[in-house]
Amino acid sequence: MKIVVPVKLIPDLVEELSIDPSGTALDMTWMRLVINELDHHAIEQAILLKEKFGAEVIVMAPDLEGADDVLFTAAAAGADRLIRIIGLGESFNNHTLAAVCQPIMVDINPDMILTGVQATDDLDGQLGPILAERLKMHYIGYIAGMSLENGSLILNKEFPGGLVAKMKVELPVVVGIQAAESPPRYIAYSRVRQARNSAEIEDIQTTELDTNLSPAITRMFQPEAEERAQILSGSLDEISDQMIKILKEAGVV
């Protein structure tokens, strides 16, 4: 069984974000990129499936700052093949990424493609379902936990309000991961370094760059709050005094 996990690198939301001079795009100059959190869960889920049922896990990432770290970390966690997609440039959307992934996927012919159900920077849809359509594969998203039974996937699809549908899905399929069955394992940096020495990254050059379906952005900005919280300040004691007072007024103390 072959499982491919295409991952996205996205701005680290812990850092300060800024808009470039055009006012229609993020300023990437100092931006720290990290793996999309849900893609990290997708890698974990793929490795859990490999450990339980046996599989070849292939992780691929666009050649952006930080891609090597992401790929070698995946190798240290248990991924078998690492692919770096070259030639995408700095900024591209999900349609472009899906177009570029398509021939690589056709070549690999996976039983399963796992990817985060969304990425925080998604504006033109999600990679998983767009890729699925291009490959004429079926897609199901919002999945938290899955296993294999007699060659079919048994998975949990989340709906609002804490409702979960246990479903049976036939392979091959593209799955949008909301959460792995268990949280991504901790990988010590020494193991990533080890992987750097033992694992190999294959570079695949892209050809088609179709940006046709990008929405025309006229403005990008950081929201200015109309109303902001009243900040309670002082020593810890003073702050907790004020908080208790608020709780009393609300009638809960």
Binding site: A98, D124, G125, Q126, G128, P129, I130, E133, F159
Partner: peptide
């Protein structure tokens, strides 16, 4: 932008070549 909508919107969009606006 939900468990139902997100499974359908992108699929139909790619099939018919329509652009998508997410979130």
């Amino acid at each position: 932008h939900t468990s139902v909508g997100m499974d359908i919107v992108c699929g139909l969009a790619s099939r018919f070549g329509f652009p998508i606006i997410s979130q």
